[in-house]
Design a binder for these strands. Structure first.
Length: 343
DNA sequence: GGCGATGATTTTTA
DNA sequence: TAAAAATCATCGCC
């Protein structure tokens, strides 16, 4: 027996047909030939439809009556209260989470890199800071620097567009859930507080997605930094004037080529480089000079002459101005080299 | 492309 | 801890 027949059979015996009769095709054919059973099935189907409509109407009517009942608001609020005290009190223990330290760290980093935060500057300040931190001179502002800025701007754009998408999706989903819960609150006890909680849960879920976005953005920035701002990769020779200034100091202080911090600062200022670059330069120069004095001899003599000429010029100017002669040029001691190039 | 020069970083030393 | 020494990575000339 198929399912439909069984159902109809159970709902009224198919108008006089026994189960045995229904199961017997000959019997059915016999009955159909009489026309009576077909009529009965139609009636039953109509009855079913009527029952369905009727019960729905009844349900609607009952629902309406319940909604309009004068005790309904009171009953609803009591149910909400009970629910609040039981189920929600268990769930709501750990609400109001403290701000996630990882998110804070990522936020700070993105802010420092110029990815999040105000648009102004487009991260160029961060790029410049990164370049300075890597030891790059401010005047090597070159293609790499602008490339870095362009790529950073690109990352920034992607980050903001994705963030906007997430925020929009979050807002849409929240609204949807809120509407759904408000709708449902007409038939079951859902308090506004519970809706708030649900919204908070949704926000938490979306914030974890945001964290992933922030994390991958940070990674992208780190890769960009290492690719563009790694000091070794973007090494630039100092310009001629800077090298001259440094050499001049070095050869005029050959007996003690260790500039003080103040001298380093002044040299850095003159050369347009950082103090640590000055230190690096002197470190390299000392060791390379020491390893191959012969090779540097010519250079040493050249700067000795230069310094002497400068000193003579200053002296002449001073005497012309009828003022006391200065002992040396720019505070450097007058050079006096031994055959090995030392003072 | 090879190679020396050079700026930066890392390791060792005093 | 600063300087020396070693090493790395890139530049720039040929």
């Amino acid at each position: 027996m198929d399912e439909q027949t069984r159902m109809l059979a159970s709902m009224g015996g198919l108008g006089g047909l026994s189960q045995a009769d229904v199961g017997d095709p000959d019997s059915v054919r016999k009955q159909q030939s009489l026309g009576q059973p077909q009529q009965d099935i139609g009636d039953i189907l109509q009855q079913i439809m009527a029952i369905t409509d009727e019960s729905l109407d009844e349900a609607q009517a009952r629902k309406h009556a319940l909604n309009c009942h004068r005790m309904k608001p009171a009953l609803f609020s009591v149910l909400c209260e009970i629910k609040e005290k039981t189920v929600l009190s268990i769930r709501g223990v750990q609400e109001e989470d403290p701000p996630d330290p990882q998110i804070m760290r990522l936020d700070n980093m993105l802010l420092a890199e110029g990815v999040s935060g105000p648009e102004k500057g487009g991260g160029s300040a961060a790029a410049a800071a990164a370049a300075a931190a890597a030891g790059g001179s401010p005047n090597d502002g070159s293609i790499e620097h602008s490339d870095y800025r362009a790529k950073l701007a690109q990352i920034r754009q992607i980050y903001h567009s994705e963030l906007e998408k997430y925020e929009q999706a979050c807002s849409e989903f929240t609204n949807h859930v809120m509407n759904l819960l408000r709708e449902q609150s007409r038939t079951r006890p859902i308090s506004p507080k519970e809706i708030e909680r649900m919204v908070a849960i949704i926000h938490r879920k979306f914030s974890s997605i945001q964290m992933q976005l922030k994390q991958s953005t940070c990674e992208a920035v780190m890769i960009l930094r290492s690719r563009f701002l790694d000091a070794r990769r973007k090494r630039r020779n100092f310009n001629k004037q800077a090298t001259e200034v440094l050499n001049e100091y070095f050869y005029s202080h050959l007996s003690n080529p260790y500039p003080s911090e103040e001298a380093k600062e002044e040299l850095a200022k003159k050369c347009g480089i950082t103090v640590s670059q000055v230190s690096n330069w002197f470190g390299n120069k000392r060791i390379r000079y020491k390893k191959n004095i012969g090779k540097f001899q010519e250079e040493a003599n050249l700067y000795a002459v230069k310094t002497a000429v400068d000193a003579a010029n200053v002296s002449a100017q001073a005497s012309q101005a009828n003022s006391p002669a200065t002992p040396n040029s720019g505070g450097y001691p007058a050079p006096c080299y031994t055959p090995d190039g030392r003072l």
